[in-house]
Amino acid sequence: MMLTGRNESAGATFVLLGFSSFPPLKLPLFMMFLAIYTVTVVGNLGMIGVIRVNPKLQTPMYFFLSHLSFLDFCYSSVVTPKLLEILVVEDRTISFKGCMAQFFFACMFVIAEMFMLAVMAYDRFVAVCNPLLYTVAMSPKLCALLVAGTYTWGVLCSSKLTYSLLKMSYCGSTINHFCCEFSAILSVSCSDTHFSQMVMLVVSTFSEVCSLLIILTSYVFIVVTIIKMPSTGGLRKAFSTCASHLTAITIFHGDILLLYSVPKSKSSWLFIKVATVFYSIVIPMLNPLIYSLRNKDVKETVKNLIHTKLLSHSV
Results as ranks from 00 to 15, higher is better:
Ile251His: 00
Ser207His: 01
Asn295Trp: 08
Ser314His: 13
Phe109Gln: 00
Val220Ser: 09
Val39Asn: 00
Ile281Arg: 02
Leu310Met: 12
Val209Asn: 03
Val203Asn: 02
Val199Gln: 07
Thr217Asn: 09
Ser280Gly: 06
Val89Trp: 12
Lys273Ile: 05
Val298Thr: 09
Leu156Trp: 06
Lys264Ile: 12
Ile256Met: 07
Gly149Asn: 08
Leu142Ser: 07
Cys171Asn: 11
His313Tyr: 09
Tyr151Ile: 06
Val199Glu: 06
Lys26Met: 15
Thr59Leu: 08
Pro230Met: 05
Asp192Thr: 10
Asp192Lys: 09
Leu57Tyr: 05
Thr38Glu: 08
Glu181Asn: 13
His307Arg: 15
Lys299Thr: 12
Arg236Leu: 15
Lys160Gln: 12
Tyr219Ser: 02
Leu132Ser: 13
Met108Cys: 13
Met47Trp: 03
Cys210Ser: 15
Phe195Leu: 13
Val126Leu: 06
Tyr37Gln: 11
Ala112Phe: 03
Val126Gln: 02
His245Asp: 04
Leu216Val: 15
Val223His: 02
Leu83Phe: 15
His245Val: 06
Val41Cys: 10
Ser268Tyr: 08
Glu181Gly: 10
Leu83Asn: 11
Ser20Ala: 14
Phe14Asn: 02
Val277His: 01
Phe104Thr: 06
Ile215Trp: 03
Gln102Leu: 08
Asp255Ile: 15
Lys266Ile: 08
Thr59Pro: 03
Ile290Pro: 05
His177Ser: 14
Val224Glu: 07
Gly233Arg: 06
